[in-house]
Simulated assay, not measured.
Amino acid sequence: MRRQLSSLDFMQTFSGKLELALKNLSMAQFPPDASRTMRKFASSEVAELLDVTEAYIRQISLKEKGPTPEVTANGRRLYTLEQVLELRTYLSEHGRKKWINPRRIEGEECQIIAVTNFKGGSSKTSTTIHLAHFLALKGYRVLALDLDPQASLTSLHGSLPGFDAREGDTLFSAIRFDDPVPTKQLIHKTHLVGLDVICAGLDLTEFETSVALEMRKSGGTSFLLRVSQALEQVADDYDVILMDSAPSLNFLTLSSLTAATGVLIPVPAHMLDVDSTGKFLELAASYMQILSDMGTSAQWDFAKFLVTKFEPNDHPQANMTALMRQVFGEDLLLNMVIKSAAVADALTWKQSLYEVQRARFSAPKTYDRAMESINAANSEIENLLWRSWGRE
């Protein structure tokens, strides 16, 4: 019996239709001639970002020191992100807080953090984008690196001028074995000052084939150093590099883990997710053992688990979190990222929660709870960076 449906026709038809539909949607949200900008920040938000009082910010403005904010009809002071960073520099030069400008100094190495877990839906991309935006708003120089061929992190930045995944504008061009390009050529500026991105595309899958061919020709584990060597070219320009890994433990993920100085493993507090994470750890351990036997190993400053999509009133999740805390101990971050409709809505708009005005949500308290949760987790991760740099 001859089946009627051609697999080739099916895949080609709907990949084309879906690509066109999503392209039209993206064009409607961000037309080619539109430039995406970051929202402005109220003085209360600026005070929180700079860890000073709002009265102090107001006093500086009244004395006409630092940047001049926009003053609305009702007297609110609004600052652009560029002005927030200018104010941070001003306070670091004239204030008493040593680390109000947190950028690393001589002797502190760029921190390269891999956000990884081969369980899909564990919030790797959400964790990466919110951490990247948090750190950029705090004044760090951040590079976000998309290592997932599905390119979710890339799509969250809208239409980036000059980016074309079909023209090899991804990290694969820098880590391929034949004629690699300089990593700096692949970096794109985003609409957030202090945040750059290297985008992803389907050509990242070619790394798996090229590694297999290279190992057949020369053997060894040189492929493990490809990501590290690519990032070494630009590490001096950044304080933190964040890598959003694919939901698989492939050659590219292994190379990123070798390049990393720290690892974050997001885990939803569900039985299937925790069980999958256990299998991920078991498989990773077997690979690391093979690499260790060959004289190659990855050394990190820290590796932490992060509970994501947590629902406080869900008893099974509370029990699973308690189990994880018992097993992982201090390697499980104290703060958990709650499941929130506010985060889901923001990502639907191709934005992080930091980009969206609170007033846009019909239930602002939902926004507040989500923001409090994300800020707490990100602050704990920031403390890990400081500890790695030897700061108090």
Rank of each mutant, 00 (worst) to 15 (best):
L8C: 04
M11I: 08
M11R: 06
S15L: 08
L18N: 13
K23Y: 09
L25W: 04
M27D: 15
D33I: 11
R39H: 00
A42L: 14
A42M: 15
E45L: 08
V46E: 01
E48C: 11
L50W: 06
D51I: 02
T53P: 14
Q59E: 07
K65T: 07
E70C: 12
V71Q: 14
V71G: 08
R76S: 14
Y79C: 06
T80Y: 03
T80I: 02
T80F: 05
L81N: 15
V84Y: 02
E93C: 01
H94M: 11
H94I: 03
G95L: 00
K97Q: 12
K98G: 09
K98D: 12
I100Y: 06
P102G: 03
I105G: 14
E109D: 08
A114F: 11
V115G: 11
G121P: 11
K124I: 08
T125S: 12
T125Q: 09
T127S: 09
T128R: 05
L131I: 08
A132Y: 03
A132T: 11
A132C: 12
H133W: 06
L135C: 04
A136N: 07
K138C: 09
V142N: 15
D146H: 04
P149F: 03
P149G: 08
Q150V: 05
L153N: 05
T154A: 03
G158T: 09
P161C: 01
D164V: 12
D164I: 11
R166Y: 15
F172E: 06
R176S: 13
D179Q: 13
P180Y: 00
H188P: 04
T190W: 07
V193C: 13
G194A: 06
L195A: 10
I198M: 00
I198E: 03
C199Y: 01
L202K: 09
F207N: 08
F207P: 12
A212S: 13
R216I: 14
S218W: 02
S222I: 10
S228H: 12
Q229E: 13
D237H: 13
Y238M: 05
M243P: 11
M243T: 13
D244P: 02
S245R: 00
A246H: 10
A246D: 11
S248W: 01
S255G: 06
G262T: 10
G262S: 12
A269R: 02
V274N: 01
S276F: 04
S276D: 07
S286C: 10
Q289Y: 12
D293C: 09
F302I: 06
Q317P: 03
A318L: 08
A318C: 14
A318Q: 15
A322Y: 00
R325Y: 01
Q326C: 04
L333K: 06
K339L: 15
S340K: 02
A346Y: 04
Y354A: 10
R358G: 02
R358N: 11
R358H: 05
K365G: 03
T366G: 14
R369D: 06
M371L: 14
S379I: 08
I381H: 12
I381Y: 02
L384S: 07
L385Q: 02
R387F: 07
G390R: 00
E392Y: 01
